[in-house]
Design a protein around this nucleic acid. Sequence first.
DNA 1: ATAAATATGGAGGGCGCCTCCGCTTATCAA
DNA 2: TTGATAAGCGGAGGCGCCCTCCATATTTAT
Lengths: 194, 194
Amino acid sequence: MAKKSEEPTVRKPRADAERNRLLLMETAKTVFADKGSSASLEEIARIAGVGIGTLYRHFPTRDALVSAVYRNETTQLAAAAKSLAETHPPVEALRLWLVQFVDYVVTKHGMSEVLDSLVGGTSELYADSADLIIGAVNLLVDRAVATGEIRLAMDPLDILRALAGGASISCGPAWRNAARQLIDILIAGMRASR
Amino acid sequence: MAKKSEEPTVRKPRADAERNRLLLMETAKTVFADKGSSASLEEIARIAGVGIGTLYRHFPTRDALVSAVYRNETTQLAAAAKSLAETHPPVEALRLWLVQFVDYVVTKHGMSEVLDSLVGGTSELYADSADLIIGAVNLLVDRAVATGEIRLAMDPLDILRALAGGASISCGPAWRNAARQLIDILIAGMRASR
DNA sequence: ATAAATATGGAGGGCGCCTCCGCTTATCAA
DNA sequence: TTGATAAGCGGAGGCGCCCTCCATATTTAT
């Protein structure tokens, strides 16, 4: 589809553009942390000191901005899965990662919407972030299933949906604890043989 | 607080007002079903054929309208808990009710936001609806715990949060199935002794 | 029939979304 | 260095939604 074999007129990308892009992401990050990811885009542009048009040029949709802002977190989460898998027994690794997943969602306060879309999977923008998360959870679940310690007859993603969804309702640290309990019950339920 | 002993000037409530109230609720119900409970209030007023001012007179906040629209459903859900408790063994009754809970949330498509606020408990508007749901789930859980068949170290409401939250992310019939599996795992997890 | 209470509707001010396009600026080639 | 030109900038403008306010219309009670 993409005709890469076009004339490779390689003009160096403009420095000011890249500067603004970073500035906007940084500003958005703090504003989202304050007011959730439904904060006004015009306000973000205002605070960043750029025109609204510039914001839209760099991030054509709200999702594009949100996903860019939280890509770091997603990446870290995926990395954590790998490292936990290497240092803990399968089921424990899974449990710890789920806890960490919830912690991210709760503390980032605004990340839940990301995960909503991410895990809801409507937007193309989240495709790569989604892949990271999906890969992470699958890695851990597969490993635990392989040992025969647990069995799971559903898409692991749906467990994340429940965990993230709970956070988006009961936003705040309260969900942290509730989710931990929930995770324990889920693990126990997956352990139980029929 | 309420000084009921005021002059009981009992003027019959105006008929047109009550008519409009009902009309608005009915209209809102269908619009919410289509577009979720974040649909435009002006559109609802427009479709109902009344002025926007009239809508706001009857329902000062969006929540007031939403909660009025879904009060029926809430009531039915609470009634179902009672009847299931009378006709099924404790754990099975709980399971069936959770399934029904999810079905409501999914099919009403827009009810999830109600439950968000309801179970999130920020708004006073939802107080009585919330009480109904809380009462229902507590009834069923307490019964099952009393027989010693399950144990539960968390607020049952948090289970509903997870179930409803999942629906608000993965809105659609897909969640129906996922939630069923989730419920089975949860029940199994609650059954497992330590 | 008339007064008093009640309800109506929509204009208006505010805000956020997003597009469009004339102007500015950075890059590159000569 | 100096144009030429692609790339980027910004904000005005159109639209829709939120919510308030109040002059007008309708209903009830006397």
